[in-house]
Every structure is written in structure tokens, then in C-alpha cells.
Design a protein around this nucleic acid. Structure first.
Lengths: 269, 269
DNA sequence: GATACAGCCTCCATCAAGGGGAGGGTCAAG
DNA sequence: CTTGACCCTCCCCTTGATGGAGGCTGTATC
């Protein structure tokens, strides 16, 4: 016969937990002093406690454990229970793996944005851009309708998306209304969908500039880039691209002052 | 302005949850009618609700979410939070994977025992046994002390164990006291440990019989097997092996009537 | 015998993240 | 004006414990 304190050390459960299990009729002391209410445990309780520990480690609920202890005396009879429980556990694993994937993506995106900003002196530079497979929706209207296009792309290509969103501008100059542009999302593999253009964008040499700040101030950066092009006597090709390195995030909309956009203008000498 | 019912549909939270979030000051309606207590939400609430949904999907706690919404307006500032949370999630994944592994093992063991029993007609038969790598503790004493040996093996070789426990009996006849035997555990790789003999057991031809029932009735099966050996004029070699296909389980001690033990006696003509 | 202190008791409250339901007030349409 | 849908607050329930208040009990020591 052990007092609750002794039994606590033997079983590895706290005193509180033992009282709780008693209340739940999961692990009942072999004797309770009717005068004092003191609980006393014996060796049979130790065995039962051991079983409960094992099952708790496997994340069985207390009611499941009571069920098991009541119904079964052989592990073979538990097979169904185990199979069912395994499915539950498996589902949780998958769920958490998805959460982890999401978080990893967020972290990766932010880190990339930070790196891009560090590497850039926010000066106009010439660089080589690789070809890229994208899905796009060509639109006419106001620039701000862009986001509608990205929403459509997100819904349609969700899991194929891999990379930063970008937008092609087909007008040779700035247009307030009735602009001709095409929001695009880089995708992992070729998938055709009604209403979207899926194709490989050609790479090539371009003049580019990283713009930091809200979209309505892109004009200043465009001015700088155009000046550079004029000075060097380069010839620009349509469409212009904007790559949204960091914009309104998936979670927080963020501070527009911190948005990062790369303007890419393809050139030929 | 939306009523709580409309906003519930817009945001995807139940009415109960919205009221709960209001109470927790996580998502407060833009207006509350002081006379009726009716809650009214606006578009800014929709955006905040969207953020909360995203973060809840990632299993952030409500207090974390409130923290994030209060402190940060840019995802980049959340990086530490995300990294910390990722670790938590990762830990859960590992934990659940371990649980799953344990359950898988239990299921596998029970299924194997069931298969073995189905395949066997509980008749004496001759078969070829493969060599096997084991860790063993040689002991002298009562058979029932066997379990002590297995406990030692379990503690010492825990994660290297792979297979059913077995025991070697070095006495030529049955001994109540002072028997000479060696509990063994099959292991995956050679690991030396003080006090244990780690070696490859040789395989070979043996006469064997599956015994179903408690260990104290093994005598009957031994009698059957010895009769067979005598009849066929075979020569037995020491030590005899008992393989515990199904004994007291890891969780439930089980019903001794269902225990399965294979007796293996190695023979040479 | 008194006292100190450890150990035990019951009862109540708390956590997270809501869900269920009772009992009662409110809104809009017919 | 009524009806039915909608909304309100308040309280209890879930799971698996944990923490604390206030009060007994048991044993050792002085």
C-alpha cells in the first residue's frame, strides 16, 4: 500500500493528476480511508498506471484509454482502435506539415526580399534575365485593377505558383485609364486553363531598377530608368515588366513604404 | 455595415466565434448599438478577419495573433515570430511521427502474430532457421527471472531492437531452479555493451512447434516435440530456443491463454 | 504534551478555443 | 400587427490537467 505521494513517484504521475484520474474513474486507488479520505494504492495500480502512461504517450484520450482498459485484455483486440488512432495521428502530421510549408514559404519570401534590397544600391543597372514560364491574364483598364488579375491567377493556378508575381505593360507610355497590361504568375509546370495565357516569357538583356515605396511613386523610378536609357542611346522593347519582390503580403498588407518592385525594360542595341 | 450574421458569411467565422473574438478584443465590430447591443462590422473588419484566418490556419494562438496585429504592420518584422513558431510546429511533427512509429510497430507485431497462428496447424515441423544477430544476457536462476533479462536488454539496446525476443536454454532437461538460460533480443546492428553478449546466432535445421497458451504449460509442447524427435531418431543440439511471438504486450499484459511461443530445437542427423 | 512541518484532503478557478442551449429582445416583411 | 428570422447575454460543457486556498493528519522533535 502506497500513499499518493509515494505512488506518484512510482507511477510518474503528479499527485494532482492521480486525484484527477481517480475522479475520472480511470485509475482508482485500491483503498480510500473513509475517515480521512486518504488514497492508498497497491501494485495492481502500478501496472494499470504503466498502461495509462503508454497510451497517453501515444496521445490516446482518457476516455479512449478507459474504453481500452475496460474492453480489452489483449493487444490483438485493439487493432481496430490502433488503426483508427493511427489515421488521426497521420492526419495531424499532414496538417502540421502543411503549416510548416506555408511558414517556410513566408520566411523564404521575406528573406529573399531583404537580400534583394541589400544587394541593390537602388541604381539603374543592366542585367541578363532568364526565360520564365508564366500564366497571365491580359486586361485593359486602370492599373489598380491589377490585383483583380492576381486574384484570378491565384485561384486558378494556386499550387502551381512558384516565384514572385510580375506584370507586363504593353503601353509605350503611362496611361491613367484604359491601360493595356497583363498580370502574370510564374508557375512550375505547363497547365492550360480557359481564359489564361500560359507561355514561356523570353529572357534577354534588360535595364532594371529596384523601386522602394508605394506603387503610386513608381513614376520617379520610371523617370530615372528612362533617363539612363536615353543617355546610353539604348532601344527599349515592349512590354515593360514590373516584378513585385515585396508587396502586400499574404498575411499582413504591410507598409507601402517598404514595398519593393523591380522595373525591367528589355533593350536591344 | 454588416450584421453579425452577414459578416459571419463574409469572414467564414461562426457567429459564436465572432462574439468570442469580440470579447477577447481580437476583432472588434466597428460599431455596437448601445441600445440593442447589436454588433455591426465594416470592410476594415473584413481585412482583419482575413489576417486572423490566415494566422489561425497556421495554428498561431489567439494571443500571438493579437500580438502580431498590434506590433507589426509588415511581414518582414514577423520573421522572428515565424521562426519561433516554425520550431514549435516542427517539434509537433516529430512528436506525432514518433507516435505513429510506435503504433505502426504495435500493429505490425500483432498482425504477424495472427499470421503465424493462421499458418500453423500447431503441429511439430522441421524447418530451416536463418542466422540472426542478437544481444543476450546469460543468467542462472529461475525461468521466471527471464523477464528481468529482457528488461535489461530493452534498456541497453532500446532503439537497436528489431524482431521478437527469444531465449536460449542451455540445460538438457527441465530445471525448476538454477536453470541456465539466456534472454536475447534481435538487433539491427552490432553494438557492444558491457555485460551483454552480442553475436550472430547460427542458423540451421530445427524441429519446431508453435505453443499457444501460458508459459507454465510449455511442458506439454516440449513433450510433443521430444516424442517427434525420438520417433524420427534425430539428434538434438543444445541450446534450445524459445521465440516469443506473442507474449505480454508493450501495453496490455494480455491474456496468457493467447500467448504464442515457438519452440525451436536444432537437430543434426 | 506541545509544536513544527510535511503530506494529504476538498473545493474552486484557470488555460485554449470555442460549442450548445435557454430565455428574451429586435428587425423586416407581409 | 404578427410572424419568423435574427440577435443579445448568461451560463455550462469540452480536454487534460494545473494552481491555490483553507483545513486535516501523521510523525518527529523538543
Amino acid at each position: 500500500m502506497y500513499s499518493i505521494g509515494e505512488f506518484s513517484k512510482l507511477s510518474g504521475f503528479t499527485i494532482k493528476t492521480l486525484r484527477f484520474y481517480h475522479e475520472k474513474q480511470l485509475l482508482e486507488p485500491s483503498a480510500v480511508d473513509p475517515a480521512t479520505g486518504y488514497r492508498y494504492y497497491d501494485n495492481a495500480n502500478i501496472e494499470r498506471a504503466r498502461i495509462i502512461r503508454q497510451l497517453r504517450k501515444m496521445e490516446f484520450s482518457l476516455s479512449d484509454i478507459r474504453d481500452i482498459l475496460d474492453k480489452y485484455d489483449d493487444q490483438a483486440e485493439m487493432l481496430d482502435y490502433l488503426e483508427g488512432h493511427k489515421k488521426t495521428i497521420q492526419a495531424k502530421i499532414i496538417q502540421y506539415q502543411n503549416v510548416k510549408k506555408t511558414i517556410d514559404n513566408l520566411i523564404k519570401n521575406e528573406k529573399e526580399a531583404i537580400m534583394t534590397m541589400k544587394d541593390s544600391g537602388f541604381e539603374v543597372e543592366e542585367k541578363q534575365v532568364d526565360p520564365i514560364l508564366v500564366a497571365g491574364v491580359r486586361m485593359k483598364g486602370k492599373y489598380s485593377d491589377c490585383s483583380v488579375g492576381f486574384q484570378k491567377l491565384g485561384r486558378a493556378f494556386g499550387r502551381y505558383i512558384k516565384g514572385k508575381p510580375l506584370c507586363l505593360y504593353y503601353d509605350a507610355e503611362y496611361r491613367e485609364e484604359d491601360a493595356d497590361f497583363e498580370p502574370c504568375m510564374p508557375i512550375k509546370q505547363h497547365v492550360e486553363k480557359e481564359g489564361f495565357s500560359v507561355r514561356q516569357l523570353t529572357g534577354g538583356k534588360c535595364v532594371c531598377l529596384l523601386h522602394k515605396g508605394p506603387y503610386d511613386q513608381l513614376g520617379r523610378s520610371y523617370a530615372r530608368i528612362l533617363e539612363y536609357v536615353k543617355q546610353k542611346g539604348l532601344k527599349m522593347n515592349c512590354p515593360t515588366r514590373e516584378v513585385y519582390i515585396k508587396g502586400p503580403g499574404i498575411i499582413l498588407k504591410g507598409n507601402p513604404k517598404k514595398y519593393l518592385t523591380e522595373i525591367q525594360m528589355f533593350i536591344s542595341d
